[in-house]
Design a protein around this nucleic acid. Structure first.
Lengths: 180, 180
DNA sequence: TTGCTCCTCACGTCACGTGAGGTGGC
DNA sequence: TTGCTCCTCACGTCACGTGAGGTGGC
């Protein structure tokens, strides 16, 4: 059976040797054996495990979550993935705020004019320009809430609407939905 | 002159006491004096410096960069800000890749039934249910493209529309925009 | 013998957070 | 006296990176 030394396996997955040393130390990917002289020996099975680890790492999961996913042996739990998705949404929002601040510092100008952040106001203006009125927007929210409540929530958050107002809007959407 | 104890100053800027202890230790914001019993004393001037620090931190700059900006005394160098902007762009891109990977993993997991992904088809259906017709949607795309082309692009990508079709839609939006 | 790979500590990173153990001030 | 604020270490975080000092293998 094909085996790998630590550096060979690292090169195979474009990782550093010290990453694999670390994964061994925290028991995430222990080398399956050692040579007489103490060299780590990795098998194809180890390589398979490492591939799963890398895939999950690319998705931004932390090593602790990856460990628990691998220990169950099968599909990652949806809750875990959704949590990470929520976290990513928040991180992106935070980075966009930073972007806006930096741009306004660079221009020496209030952020309003210089950066086309799509927020609630702009979104409403665009729908209105397309010919939608209040009633149509209400129908649209109701439809969104009915079909995909989670997505409705994160869509509203992406428009920089604070959590509490998001809740109000969704409440109102559900009411409109039953009214129809 | 008005002075502050460490916790008072921390509360004033919504920071923790240990943050200010840390800023003192690394000499980013040393307390200007001590009482006989060793308590840190901060002045209005210190508060002013802290305000600049907080503003730069919110823009995502690291403490080392902030230190060098404050030492020059005036405007942050454009090069530094642009570097950070570039970094932010890369971080956002990376997070979007993670988002894509997670969503594709979730689709696999949720094939048992419980996760309504909002894609192009659902989006169009929702707008139609709200009363929008083809012409209104065209006006909306044109408006979106005109006001925030970058955001329009990433919005379309978020509906799982492939890059090439996104380009076609944007092209078409620009044409509609000039037609109006 | 030379040059390469491997080993095991130990310490550094970044911006703090969290105690432990002790003192000052009203 | 009580309860609050303050002090100074020292250690932890997360996922590794970077030596130092030494050995094995061709």
């Amino acid at each position: 059976m094909r085996t790998y030394s630590i550096s060979k396996l690292a090169r195979l997955f474009d990782l550093s040797r010290s990453t694999l040393l670390y994964y061994d130390r925290i028991d995430l990917l222990p080398a399956c054996a050692r040579t007489e002289s103490g060299y780590r020996v990795y098998t194809q099975e180890d390589a398979g495990r490492l591939e799963r680890i890398c895939r999950l790492r690319r998705a931004g999961l932390c090593l602790e979550d990856i460990r628990s996913i691998l220990s169950t042996g099968d599909q990652p739990s949806a809750v875990l993935l959704e949590n990470r998705l929520k976290g990513i949404g928040e991180e992106i929002l935070e980075l966009k705020v930073q972007q806006g601040l930096l741009l306004s510092m660079l221009k020496g100008v209030a952020s309003k004019g210089t950066w086309p952040q799509v927020d609630k106001q702009m979104w409403v203006e665009m729908l209105r320009a397309a010919g939608m009125d209040e009633a149509a927007m209400a129908r649209w929210h109701a439809e969104f809430e009915r079909r995909a409540p989670e997505e409705h929530h994160s869509f509203l958050l992406s428009l920089s609407i604070p959590e509490r107002e998001v809740e109000r809007i969704r409440e109102w959407s559900r009411k409109k939905g039953t009214d129809l």
